[in-house]
C-alpha cells in the first residue's frame, strides 16, 4: 500500500522541481542522494551503511521481479526493497557531481 502511494508521486517533490527517488534511477546510472524521507532511526541506520546526503549511489543488479535491488554506495553493495529505495530522494540530475 505504502509503496503505491509513493510511486504515484503523491508526496514527492516538495521543492517544486521534479525530484527522482532512488527507486526510479535506472540500473547503472549514478545519482546523488539529497535526503532520506524516513523516520530518524531508520534514516540513521541507512546513513551508517553509506546512504548519506551528497553520496553517489549506483543501482546494480536486482532479484527477479526488480526488487530488492543492489545499490553500490560508499565502497560497498547494499540491497534495499523498493519501498525503502523510493523514500531516498535524489538531487535533480544537473546537480550530480
Amino acid at each position: 500500500m505504502l509503496q503505491m502511494s509513493v510511486n504515484s508521486g503523491a508526496d514527492a517533490a516538495p521543492k517544486g522541481a521534479f525530484a527522482r527517488t532512488l527507486a526510479q534511477l535506472p540500473e547503472g546510472e549514478a545519482g546523488v542522494l539529497d535526503r532520506l524521507d524516513l523516520p530518524d532511526d531508520i534514516a540513521r541506520r541507512l546513513m551508517e551503511l553509506g546512504f548519506l546526503p551528497g553520496h553517489i549511489i549506483v543501482p546494480a543488479r536486482s532479484a527477479p521481479g526488480g526488487e530488492p535491488r543492489v545499490y553500490r554506495v560508499d565502497g560497498s553493495e547494499v540491497a534495499l526493497r523498493r519501498e525503502t529505495a523510493s523514500r531516498l530522494i535524489l538531487r535533480p540530475s544537473k546537480g550530480a557531481a
Binding site: 541506520r45 543492489v70 547494499v78 540491497a79 534495499l80
Partner: peptide, 10 residues
C-alpha cells in the same frame, strides 16, 4: 516491527 527496512549487505 517499527517498519525496520530490509537491508542486506552484499
Amino acid at each position: 516491527s517499527e517498519r525496520v527496512p530490509f537491508v542486506l549487505e552484499m
